[in-house]
Design a binder for these strands. Structure first.
Lengths: 107, 107
DNA sequence: AAAATTGATATCCTAAAAGATATCTAATGG
DNA sequence: CCATTAGATATCTTTTAGGATATCAATTTT
């Protein structure tokens, strides 16, 4: 497996965490079972392109083929906020609790 | 299948052609059977990540996950020479045999 | 015209991803 | 202390990619 494989899985995991999503939450969004997300993030399985794209899509990421010579330039761009704030936090990590089924008793 | 899937296959094909490689030549380089390369380029199969990376590697391309918000910027960069000259032609294209164009009259 | 290349397809078999479920442990929280 | 949540694993079945080969039609080359 080429090196890109080792770099993609961690990026997916990081993006998910930065969006404040649990594997199960992402599973619900994507339809991809939590067990599989776990394996993917740990590089246990060699997932298919459609699966990768589906995951990426739900994490506001896009899969691109970049000419080798342009990689540094691209990294300079995405490196600055690489998966950083992404678009919208989607979920800012509730300090209290509420997820969506629990009422807020403190506001 | 997300849209990225439709965009990746053609890019692989274009990159291969621009490097002057036949499917069989690429097959020899990668070990991936020609029959499969054909299917991949035509979007007939949902290839695995390792396969995609292997193909990309041999075409001087790198697979990257780009934050959606950065996609336009990245496209601006790689768009200018997207899969263009890449690194080295890999195949020096015999001037006499002319396999591309016949503009050999003015240099 | 005959020969060689190129890309697309087809079949057979095998390996592995995918999908559905169920646990198990560790950490969190009421 | 018990309940919930999160992530990692395991098992079972189905589906499909992957590997090996062969062939065919359309070009291209000689």
């Amino acid at each position: 497996m080429a090196y890109a494989a080792e770099t993609i899985a961690p990026r997916l995991k990081k993006a998910r965490e930065q969006k404040g999503l649990s594997q199960r939450a992402l599973s619900a969004k994507t339809g991809i079972p939590q067990a599989k997300i776990s394996k993917i993030e740990n590089g246990v399985i060699d997932l298919r392109l459609s699966t990768l794209i589906e995951l990426a899509r739900n994490l506001d990421l896009d899969l691109m083929l970049v000419p080798r010579k342009s990689v540094p330039a691209v990294q300079a761009i995405i490196g600055s906020d690489a998966g950083g704030g992404s678009s919208q936090p989607d979920q800012i990590k509730p300090a209290y609790s509420l997820d969506d089924d629990e009422e807020r008793d403190d506001v």
